[in-house]
Design a protein around this nucleic acid. Structure first.
Lengths: 254, 254
DNA sequence: CGCTGAGTTGAAACATGTCAACCGGTGTGG
DNA sequence: CCACACCGGTTGACATGTTTCAACTCAGCG
């Protein structure tokens, strides 16, 4: 099984750096919010935070390569992943200049990010108003994704939730790397992170995944996701097949 | 008590039109995204949709007065309220021009809304780039609210969830109508709608509310919410008291 | 005057969480 | 080079929170 190959090659329990994925990715520049601004480019290694809860620096983050999880924490340590960001996403936008971030952003793979100080953003948008429009579009997209997740967590069963999440991540991945037409991908998540995103415990996520595997719908082992039966996955996820198809067309915003 | 007056006057189980709230509201113009554009002003009566799922008209909606619920539906009728919008909110913004709305917007009270056709929006923003900035800010705010709800639904118990929702709505209400310094307000929701927002059944919402009432924390009866013990509510909601205070300072964005 | 919509309550069913033991692989320190 | 700890995953038995189903209240309305 290929999962084990990968595992052996680069260490099963170290964070993958997803260089494999990167080789087929669109060039980093394609995802820039501000076309020629490269001064803020920064590399963040897997597992580190791009920014943490409470961050109040005057900058936003434009993800150029890699996967990032946006999360919140409760005092007692409960954690919720509210969004998975892909290249092109704009992170750390706060609604008021002064308010500190209520979410953190953790790199799931090694990541390339453009850090854009607020003054740079405002000066560039004066010259190119399209920047703000793109920013708004990206925010609208994030909102819609968040609304999707809300319905999922609020109204779907555990089984539906994880099916829905896998389907979403798979289609977003495909939209990003259109070359990849196979039903297999590197999904740099642990079962615990899937639980944090779906509002479940990792134990229960495990049971659901085992069931889906036994039923021949999907396999997910050690960061490798394989869609065996896309139609049944769509059905279990409870998505209108037409909408599921539309997902494959979506703009690669975040 | 005013609730009963209102109740008697206009029928207890008919949708309130919240004219009472409106009398102390800031003038409608204060909430306009485009300062002097009044052509799109429209009135929508309680219970009707401003727009429904699948709406693909080329316009966005700027809520000027009243309460609106943004919701999604699953095929089998399960419903999730993903957001409550207050005056100032900008609704129906889609990330791609062509994509139909995946959410609907239902008026919870009689509502005044400015319908802004996309061409109007774009032409005005060319003249006044601030419009797009305000739009982006509003979207960022909606995102943050959605993230809050996500953590609530994903990681909190039923009790915490409804406490959190009541607290949120109360603080947002206060931010809107700063005159109202009492711990009482008209909250134009049924227990079923609270359930749809928190991912619970109305039966369970009822039990939770009864418990909170018996413990002398809040009362919620027939659209009148009364915070008896704010501190314990904050505690039950599991919000950092400092953050709860900060909420009272927040911009009145939606 | 019966109907409807919102709310209330109880008993039983069920989905998910909790706790605990265990596996296999990897990296680390002796 | 081995022993060990650690991390992610797997499984079972049991506990519990929430849902489901059902019956019943109350007020207003046609």
């Amino acid at each position: 099984m290929q999962a084990d190959e990968v595992t052996k090659r680069r260490g099963r329990h170290k964070q993958d750096n997803a260089s494999e994925a990167r080789t087929v990715a669109l060039p980093v520049d394609a995802h820039r919010l501000i076309p020629n601004y490269r001064n803020g480019d920064r590399r963040v290694e897997a597992g580190r935070d791009l920014f943490s809860i409470g961050f109040d620096g005057k900058a936003i983050f434009n993800l150029l390569d890699g996967w990032v999880a946006i999360y919140t924490l409760l005092e007692d340590g409960r954690r919720q992943i509210v969004q998975f960001a892909l290249p092109g996403a704009v992170l750390g936008v706060r609604s008021s200049r002064s308010a500190p971030a209520t979410v953190g952003a953790q790199a799931l793979t090694d990541v390339v990010v453009s850090v854009i100080p607020t003054p740079v953003l405002t000066s560039h948008s004066r010259a190119d108003p399209d920047i703000t429009v793109r920013l708004a579009r990206s925010l609208a997209h994030d909102c819609n994704l968040a609304f999707d997740h809300l319905t999922s967590i609020g109204r779907r069963s555990a089984r539906e939730r994880v099916a829905h999440l896998l389907l979403e991540l798979f289609t977003r991945y495909r939209a990003q790397w259109p070359g990849h037409r196979s039903e297999e991908m590197v999904l740099p998540l642990t079962q615990e992170q899937i639980g944090d995103a779906t509002g479940l415990t990792f134990v229960h996520v495990n049971r659901v995944l085992s069931a889906l595997r036994k039923e021949g719908i999907v396999q997910f082992h050690y960061r490798r996701l394989r869609i065996i039966d896309p139609d049944r996955l769509i059905e279990v996820a409870g998505v209108d097949p037409e909408i599921a198809m539309a997902w494959l067309e979506r703009q690669p915003w975040g």
